[in-house]
Design a protein around this nucleic acid. Structure first.
Length: 161
DNA sequence: GCCAACGTTGGC
DNA sequence: GCCAACGTTGGC
């Protein structure tokens, strides 16, 4: 029996890494390194599979919101930036035997013609349950319902889904 | 820049 | 195991 595809939301600060950055990478693909939160790590390690789709969310910017779609194209493997003292993501507790942190690779699928803003998500009864809409939410990777994913794609004016 | 909410750390 | 202190996130 084929596993059902899952849906996710990935947050990123566009000043640091935007969906435009992702699209301009070779193969439109980049490793999602630097996750240093256990819950987010566990989603990647335990639940994320190739073929899963992700909403790409821009945070900490003028109009926070969903700006497009990416696909998981490589499953969890060690995030070796945790071992590099020169990396911003260095973790002194990481060791080669137990790097502690992992990453997946995301491939750009589509940049939406418009941003589906956080304000819009919060005021739409179909979306207000999303974790990203909760006040004080800081988790950088959250699961999304298939219906929410498709609804946001439709709001953005794309046939994707 | 402000500050509320959160996750992590470390003393006990 | 508790919980206060701290650093960070992220909307506004």
């Amino acid at each position: 029996m084929a596993a059902k595809r899952s849906y996710w939301l990935f947050k990123s600060e566009p000043d640091v890494f935007s969906i435009q950055h992702l699209e301009s990478r070779p193969g439109k693909t980049e490793s999602w390194d630097g996750v240093r939160n256990y819950q987010a790590r566990n989603y990647m390690r335990d639940a994320m599979r190739c073929g899963d789709l992700a909403l790409f969310y821009h945070s900490n910017c003028a109009t926070p919101g969903v700006v497009g779609i990416a696909e998981v194209t490589r499953e969890a493997h060690p995030d070796l930036t945790a071992l590099d003292p020169k990396s911003d993501y260095y973790d002194p507790k990481a060791t080669p035997d137990n790097p502690r942190w992992c990453m997946v690779a995301l491939t750009h699928v589509q940049t939406f013609p418009r941003t589906v803003s956080l304000a819009e998500i919060r005021e739409d009864p179909a979306l207000e349950q999303m974790l990203v809409a909760r006040k004080g939410n800081r988790l950088s990777i959250t699961p999304v319902e298939e219906a929410e994913f498709k609804y946001i794609c439709r709001l953005a004016g794309t046939p994707q889904g």
